[in-house]
Design a protein around this nucleic acid. Structure first.
Lengths: 196, 196
DNA sequence: TTCATTTTGTACCGATCGGTATGTAATCGA
DNA sequence: TCGATTACATACCGATCGGTACAAAATGAA
């Protein structure tokens, strides 16, 4: 039989960028097919309809997003410095190389999670995975003696997750560097209290 | 001449709810006219096209949002308790009476701010207004002796704003009460370090 | 080479989108 | 009471939406 003329992963990444830039509703099939460089029947044969495609894109995004967070949090030995690096990276590049892109998971929460239980569940699960990652990184800081052992690691992890989400949203409006620096500095005082 | 058969403010609030629930793109003129209970020509005569209507809706929302924040932050005398009350209120009701509604300003940032400078500017200005409100509330805590005078009030305000935005996004996925409680508790440790 | 199978590009589908022309109903000043 | 004026409801506009029918092109198996 005739073989595919495109790489499935490659065009899925292209679709991811389109949804990431525009959101689900505003990303038209025209936008998608142009950026993916395939025609509509090929798209439907390979990925199903727009909703199914978005589901596959979101799965891909979340995998890459977790990998990104793991990578950034693993760069530094001290948890406080590692989370500072994550906040800094989110404000200057983010997982997509452009901080104004924001986060596709947040976009999905805002645009779709309220209406559709499928996206509510997927995005909540992602939130929990991130929170668990954060918690483990904090536990690591406790084990190493950096942080006091009586810390509520989960509470600190959840507060940091909220701060990360908040900062990700805030930088989409292109605020001054001073505003961003101040936000990061303020958030990192969460670790002052936690240090041993 | 024939008078208007509807109250301008009333139908604008109805439009606000529609945009708040669905976002700009997903809110169709059909949805809007049904909920506003006016016909399309009346809508266009009174508010201009969809984009103009959204601008007026967003202005209204931001005014109400600021008033809501001022009201909640004014309930308690101690800044730490007041911000705790705000976080708690956001997780249980929010400015719209339903925490899963989230925030129209955040929705605008996510959906429109990246593409259209007009919305970037408007939402950034709102962010700055909120940050300034937060900062003043913290200064008040310093004046009253609740918080140490060497605090960086702006940094704390910005960190709290990020936390507020993050929590607002997070509760749209309907997380467990324990998760929310933990997030709030963790965020409030920002005040532990600041207390005098 | 030939046939069965799959992918491809084109051209099209009904539905819905935002927006408007038009005629009628309601109210004002005179 | 009567015209000028404004708002109203209906019905419609072209454009675009997501999605698909169809036939030509490309391949592997025989």
């Amino acid at each position: 039989m005739r073989p595919r003329a495109f790489d499935e992963r490659e065009v899925l990444e292209a679709a991811m960028r389109v949804f990431w830039e525009k959101g689900y509703e505003a990303a038209s099939l025209h936008d998608l097919t142009v950026r993916m460089n395939i025609r509509k029947p090929s798209l439907y044969a390979a990925f199903g309809d727009k909703r199914e495609l978005f589901g596959k894109v979101l799965d891909l995004y979340m995998r890459k997003h977790i990998a990104y967070v793991d990578e950034v949090l693993g760069r530094e030995s001290a948890a406080a410095v590692a989370f500072g690096g994550l906040l800094r990276d989110l404000a200057t590049a983010g997982s997509g190389g452009d901080p104004t892109l924001g986060c596709l998971a947040i976009l999905t929460i805002d645009e779709l999670a309220r209406r559709e239980p499928e996206w509510t569940a997927k995005t909540q699960a992602h939130q929990l995975r991130l929170a668990e990652r954060f918690r483990q990184r904090i536990e690591q800081g406790i084990s190493s003696g950096e942080l006091a052992p009586d810390q509520d690691a989960a509470a600190l992890a959840h507060a940091l997750l909220a701060a990360v989400i908040g900062l990700t949203v805030m930088v989409k409006t292109r605020p001054d560097a001073a505003f961003v620096d101040s936000t990061i500095a303020g958030t990192l005082t969460l670790f002052k209290e936690a240090q041993s």
